[in-house]
Simulated scan of single mutants.
Amino acid sequence: MRAVTALPDPRTGWGLPALGALPRTADLEPLVTRVLAPNPSPMTLDGTNTYVVGAPGNGQAVLVDPGPDDAAHLAAVEAALGARGARCVAVLVTHHHGDHAEAALPWGQRFGAPVAAGSPAVAGPGGRVLEPGERLSLAGTAIDVVATPGHTADHLAFRLESGAVLVGDHVLGRGTSVVTHPEGDVVAYLESLRRVHDLGPSALYCGHGPELTEDPGAVLDFYLAHRAQREQQLLDALAAGAATVDQLVATVYAQVPREVWPAAAQSTRATLDKLAVEGRVVLGPAERVRTA
């Protein structure tokens, strides 16, 4: 198998906080306060980022991705609302995964605030299903709804008046996002990356990890290039003799901790689906794969 040169991650020289060093609460810009949930893990990185969004002095705020229904996290979010002199008037959710959405309905009920999301299951019986391209006028500001399917089919991003985009799990502050099989769609994911890139974001506020403010476009370029690199690595591994998903993961992700190999396997299956649709690989029984 020919060597594949590692792609440079532009974030490596930005001086971002080390893993585990993100502050519990941080004011990112006048419109946004980030509150970190206490649910760190190999998949959630530092934990889930909950965002409190609203115009200063407006007396209102929107919660984006409330995260886990955790008493300590709720207390920290309520403290952030108090510091802004704001009450919660809406709960927005980027996608249905529990580390982002679990608290949406109970907190919406607690605050007397409607829940809005891309799927009716998350929005709940009294909530609102958001449509791509909508502009929400909430908490003294405008929030644009951006379709970003790929990580999940119901994934949305939210563009703020400042030009920052709250990207959920579409882009992470560290590493790269996982597109799982079968709910993930690599083709849709790549299209969504380009859609966010075309917005020219001033910052990317991620579902996990630090905010990306120095050159958001460079991070999106890296994400696109990283996906292309993974595809080539899989094709090279197949040409060298790998014939199953497990063998591909062991080859391509050899330098990655084994605890994340199950997620890598899901991402590999999603990428193989894309390559199969393109006629570049053939998928067989028992997760066997060969080049076309």
Rank of each mutant, 00 (worst) to 15 (best):
A3K: 12
T5R: 14
T5Y: 00
G13L: 08
G15W: 05
L16W: 02
L22W: 10
R24F: 00
R24E: 13
D27L: 11
D27E: 15
L36I: 03
A37K: 02
A37I: 02
N39I: 08
P40D: 05
S41Q: 05
S41G: 13
S41I: 06
P42G: 03
M43Q: 12
L45M: 11
D46S: 01
V52Y: 07
Q60L: 12
V64N: 14
V64W: 12
D65P: 08
D65W: 09
P66H: 05
P68S: 13
A72T: 13
L74K: 11
A76H: 03
A80L: 07
L81H: 08
L81D: 05
L81S: 06
G82S: 06
V91A: 11
L92S: 04
H95G: 08
H95W: 11
H97A: 14
G98A: 15
G98D: 15
A103L: 02
A104C: 11
A104N: 09
L105M: 09
G108Y: 09
Q109A: 15
G112D: 04
A113E: 09
P114Y: 00
A116I: 00
G118T: 07
S119N: 11
S119D: 15
A121V: 11
A123Q: 10
E131M: 13
G133A: 09
E134Y: 10
S137T: 13
A139F: 03
A142G: 08
V145A: 05
V146L: 15
V146K: 01
T148P: 01
T148C: 06
H151W: 03
D154P: 09
H155L: 03
L156A: 03
E161M: 04
S162F: 09
S162M: 08
L166N: 01
G175D: 12
G175T: 09
G175Y: 12
T176E: 14
T176F: 10
S177C: 05
V178G: 04
H181R: 11
H181E: 11
P182N: 03
P182V: 03
E183L: 13
G184V: 07
V186K: 11
L190N: 04
S192G: 02
L193H: 01
R194N: 05
R195G: 04
G200N: 06
G200W: 08
A203G: 03
A203M: 08
L204E: 05
L204C: 07
C206G: 06
C206A: 14
E211N: 02
E211T: 13
T213I: 07
E214S: 07
D215P: 00
D215K: 04
V219C: 05
V219R: 11
L220Y: 02
F222Y: 14
L224E: 13
R227Y: 08
E231R: 15
Q232I: 00
L234P: 00
L238H: 03
V245W: 03
Q247E: 15
V249H: 02
T251S: 15
T251N: 12
T251C: 13
Q255F: 10
P257V: 06
W261L: 05
A263C: 01
A265E: 08
S267A: 15
T271N: 08
D273Q: 12
K274I: 04
K274T: 15
K274D: 14
V277C: 12
G279P: 09
R280G: 10
G284H: 15
G284W: 09
P285T: 14
A286K: 14
V289Q: 06
V289Y: 05
R290P: 00
T291Y: 02
